[in-house]
Every structure is written in C-alpha cells, then in structure tokens.
Design a protein around this nucleic acid. Structure first.
Lengths: 217, 217
DNA sequence: CTTCGTCTGTGATGCTAATCACCGGAGGTA
DNA sequence: TACCTCCGGTGATTAGCATCACAGACGAAG
C-alpha cells in the first residue's frame, strides 16, 4: 500500500468517521486525489463543469451564487472539514454546468472523488449512502436558512448571522476583509455595510480596523 | 394480486416511468398507500412530523416556508404528478420536524411510502436511487431559483414568475384566489400586489376579476 | 516624506415596498 | 331591501437600502 493511500486513510479516520466500511475506506484511499488550494483561490467558477466530488479535509470553502444578468453575488453557505458539496453531485451526474461558485477562504485540502464512484458506492456502501443523503439534507436546510434570512430578516440580523458563520467556520474572531467583500457576500451596497458596522461597533458587537474586523459575539 | 395493487402499478407506469424494476413496482404496489386530498387541504403543517414520503400521482401541491417569529410565509415551489418531496426524506430519516408546510392546491392524490422502504430501496434498486437523487437535485435547483428571485429581482419579475408557475402547474390560466393570498405567497403586502396587478392589467398581461385572475402570458 | 491607490465615512437624493388610513363595490344574508 | 363582511383601490407617509458624490485616512511604494 502506498504512502498516499495511508495518508488518506488516516485523514478519513479523523474527518469522516461515519464512513465506516473498511473496503470503502480503501477504495477512497486508492482512488481519491488529494488537492490543495490556497487562501482566496477560486476552486470552481460559476458555469464550469464539475468532474469530482470533494470531501473537505481541512480549511473552509465559501459557496456562493452569482446572478446571471447583473453580476451580483450572494453567499449561500460555508463548508468545513467533514463536509462535502451536494451541489456537485448532481452537477456531475447530469454533466451540467455548475450553478454556484466555490472559493477557498483559507488554505484548504480536499479529497476529490471521481463521479462514477460516488454513484456506484451509493448502492454498494451503506455508510456512503447515508453520508451523501445527510449531505443533501444539510444543504437543503442551509438553503432554507438562506431564504429565511433574505426573505424575513433585515440587513442587521443578516450581518450578525454572517459574522457569526464566518468567525465560527474559520475559527478566528478576526476577519481580514474589506467592507466591499462583505457587501458582495450579502448582496447589499458597500455604504450600507459601512454604516451598519459603525452601529455594531457602537454597541460593542464588533471592533473595526482597516481591512479587518473582530467579532465580539 | 389485489385490485389496489393493480391500480397502483398502472399509476406507476403512467407517472413514474423511470421506476423501472418490476420487483420495485410490485413492492410499491403492495406497500404504498393511496391518499387523496381536497383542494385547499393542508397536507402537512410546519413543525409536524413526517412518516411518509409522497409520490405525487395527480394534482398540485404547494410547498411553503413559514417564518417562526412573525408568521410570515413564502412559497418555495410547486409539486406535480411525477414529483416527490425531497424535504420529507430527511425529515423522515432524522425524525425531525418539518421545515415546511404543504398544501393541496387542487384535488390531489399521492402514494405514501413508509420511510424505511425509501431508505432500503436506495441500495436495492438502481432506478429508485436515481429517482431519489434526481428529486434532491431538482429541489436544490428550485431553492436556488427562489433565492435568485428574492435576492436579485424586484416584485414585478417575481410576480410574473409566480403567475407563470401557478398557471402551468395547475394547467389553468385562471387562478381563483385573492390578492391577499398572492401577497402571502410572495411575502409582500397586499397593497403592493394590488397596485402591481393593476399595472400588469394595463399592459395586458393579466385580466382581473374579484377572487380571480387570468394570466395572458 | 511624499505620492498614490485603496478603503472607509458621510451627506444628499431616489426608489421600492411597507404601513396606515379610508373608501367603495360585490355579493351573501336576514 | 337593508345590512354586513370581505375584497380591492388609492392616497399619504415612512422605512430600508441603493445610488451618487466626495472627502479624509491609511498604508505601500518610491
């Protein structure tokens, strides 16, 4: 057995304990490709074709939707170690263009699984089937949460959720980004973000700095 | 073989041709429960527990999200013959409360499949697995479309999509409902709907009447 | 230290839809 | 017919955020 395979098996044990079958672990170890992305790197652009399903091993991936017509953007959800991207399943299987854009927020490592195995293992391995189904479910629920927040909440609540999600997902209370980036993620104007953040700073919920922000929630 | 089973098998042939395996058809025919709902009947309320996954045979089901705090509502998507409700999969499997509310828009018939079979058949029948996966995929894409429309479009575009979806789904260009109901579905005020519909009537896109509206798109 | 581009703060103004207030019409009921 | 309730139309006002315009502040590069 190769060093590469052993490494992947170790990673699987640590991050994907629910993938239980020994032979499945071995298959993943043989077939899976370890891929690294730098912070800020675009993993998959909107409209591109997907050929792999990623198991996230380390880091944090931002998944966002882009508007066809006006180039607007909206953060959908964040993925962390132990997650996978359900959106890629169907994109893969139906050989469709991606409806979303994914970007590494920090140094991120994934195991790429070619599509045909993702499908084959569904009927072959109970734990893989459960893993995939759970993933779909989580994503659907995330989407419902996104809809809730843009349909039912004002910008202030959305901002709080946003800061909470980002700081928890990266494990760092201080975010290094501009107001413009946040405005893009939330699909609002930069001015609205600046004004709102000022208010939040006044009530002590955040501490502001140039190109950075600390969440005190 | 019972009459009930034969009836279900016939229905399956007509509405779910992708469910190919003979033995799966037979299992569904044996296990599935035919259920009828009247127009306007609430099938499953927000917060209730789900024990069946429905295969929609006839009619039209409205799936909507309800806001916990302020009782606001928002139409997510419509289901027709040949569809199933992916949201119910995970609700079932994880024995969670439903995140959504479903309501029959017209006289509707479903085949109810108990959860344990839904799961078991995933590994047992290729076509069932594909059916379930396709359904998840469609639902995810629907959710993305909802997000697009509330995040990126104004009320006018949303209204057009809404009328288009409803008339297509029910197969009837004339909708029998009040402005208030539409306002609820779109999560906007009744006045906004009335004013907008007036404009659409002026450009000849709709014809208005008390408690009804005809879409000329 | 100066320059320059990027980031942030802030006022002015506008647009979309919410909210409030009220009215008249349609249609059912006594 | 008289009444009463629900539905729809409409104006006035407000709220939230977009857009425009510009100024000051910071930090990197020279």
């Amino acid at each position: 057995m190769s060093l590469h395979s052993l490494k992947i098996q170790k990673i699987l044990h640590q991050n994907f304990p629910q993938i239980a079958e020994k032979s499945l672990q071995e298959e993943i170890a043989t077939i899976g490709q370890l891929m690294d992305f730098e912070a800020g790197e675009l993993i998959m652009d909107y409209g591109s074709y997907v050929r792999m399903v990623p198991l996230i091993v380390k880091g944090c991936i931002k998944v966002s939707r882009e508007d066809d017509e006006e180039g607007k953007e909206l953060l959908l959800y964040l993925l962390n170690a132990g997650d996978t991207c359900s959106m890629s399943f169907t994109c893969c299987m139906m050989d469709k263009k991606s409806a979303i854009r994914t970007e590494a927020l920090e140094a991120t490592t994934i195991i790429g699984i070619p599509i045909k195995y993702v499908d084959r293992w569904m009927t072959q391995y109970q734990s893989w089937k459960n893993f995939v189904m759970m993933s779909y479910d989580n994503r659907l629920l995330e989407m419902v949460k996104v809809i809730d927040s843009i349909a039912f909440r004002g910008l202030d609540k959305r901002m709080e959720q946003y800061l909470k999600a980002l700081t928890e997902s990266t494990g760092n209370k201080t975010l290094f980004m501009t107001h413009q980036k946040m405005a893009d993620d939330l699909n609002v104007s930069r001015e609205a973000v600046s004004r709102l953040l000022k208010k939040l700073a006044q009530i002590g919920l955040v501490k502001l700095g140039r190109n950075q922000l600390t969440f005190l929630g």
